[in-house]
């Protein structure tokens, strides 16, 4: 199993001052899996994402993605290695058009040179046309083909989440990290999202890891779950076994008091 794993996280710890937000977490993800990272509030899920994408310093441990070391690489390098993400609190470029949001994300695949860009050479024009075509294709995939010219900040919440996914896909990633993609969505939107994520995985053949509080979505969508509680990984397995796991039930009941 270890040999086929695409993402390998071993003994990952992240410490802020005296607080251990993530403590000795190990997990791995096989290619084209739909993984889920769950746990009560404050369990350290987003911190794991931040560590994976180089947005917070890793105190100890290792993160490997395919044959690359991601540990403490800067975010833009990790993006280049094929890891894309969305954010819990949506970080679209609000004052730019939806299409520009997507075009920006093509950045690392751009081949024309600075001089070509400055002179708008034929090569620039050819490639820009390709970039726009790809952006439109991705918008179509998330069902927002007609929203390209809108300002990203003007779209409703649910659509912004989908734009953010489309933008992440412009990187042509091998691993897609989604931080609470269904937050603030109604049940119908959530259902559409579920289908979208499944389609993305199937059609683009990429690995997906998501953080989500909507248990219905998680249980229906994910094939493998990782449960965090107070920075510790307390359970791993398929949705059925997680649902029956005594420690997980306790963490949720005890942790939230709900």
């Amino acid at each position: 199993m270890a040999t086929t794993a695409e993402l390998m996280v071993s003994n990952l710890s992240v410490q802020f001052g005296g607080l251990k937000a993530v403590d000795q977490v190990c997990f791995s993800l096989k290619p084209k899996t739909l993984g889920g990272l769950i746990g009560p509030n404050g369990a350290g899920k987003t911190t794991v994402f931040n560590a994976l994408t180089g947005m917070c310093p890793v105190t100890s441990g290792q993160i490997r993605f395919k044959d690359k070391q991601l540990t403490n690489e800067p975010p833009h390098v990790i993006a280049r290695y094929g890891v894309a993400r969305t954010f819990q609190n949506i970080r679209l470029f609000r004052n730019l058009s939806v299409l520009d949001n997507l075009r920006i994300a093509y950045h690392q695949n751009r081949k024309y040179s600075l001089l070509c860009g400055i002179f708008h050479s034929p090569r620039y024009k050819r490639e820009e046309a390709q970039i726009t075509a790809k952006a439109e294709e991705m918008l179509d995939l998330v069902g927002l083909a007609d929203k390209g010219e809108h300002l990203a900040g003007s779209l409703p919440y649910g659509e912004q989440r989908r734009v953010e996914i489309a933008r992440a896909l412009m990187l042509s990633p091998r691993l897609l990290l989604l931080d609470e993609p269904a937050a603030g969505m109604n049940p119908q939107e959530t259902q559409t999202l579920l289908e979208l994520i499944r389609r993305v995985r199937d059609e683009l053949e990429i690995t997906v890891l998501l953080i989500e509080h909507d248990m219905k979505l998680v249980m229906n969508l994910c094939e493998e779950l990782f449960v965090l509680d107070y920075g510790h990984l307390i359970a791993t397995g398929d949705p059925k076994s997680i649902q029956r796991n005594q420690r997980v039930v306790e963490a949720y009941l005890g942790g939230n008091g709900a």
């Binding site: 994408t53 180089g54 947005m55 800067p74 975010p75 833009h76 993006a79 280049r80 894309a84 993400r85 954010f87 970080r91 679209l92 470029f93 609000r94 004052n95 730019l96 520009d100 920006i104 994300a105 950045h107 690392q108 933008r167 992440a168 412009m170 990187l171």
Partner: peptide, 15 residues
């Protein structure tokens, strides 16, 4: 522009 709008998001996109 991406750097101006949101540096963290820009970095996450490989900028």
């Amino acid at each position: 522009l991406a750097v101006r709008e949101d540096e963290i998001a820009a970095e996450s996109l490989g900028v």
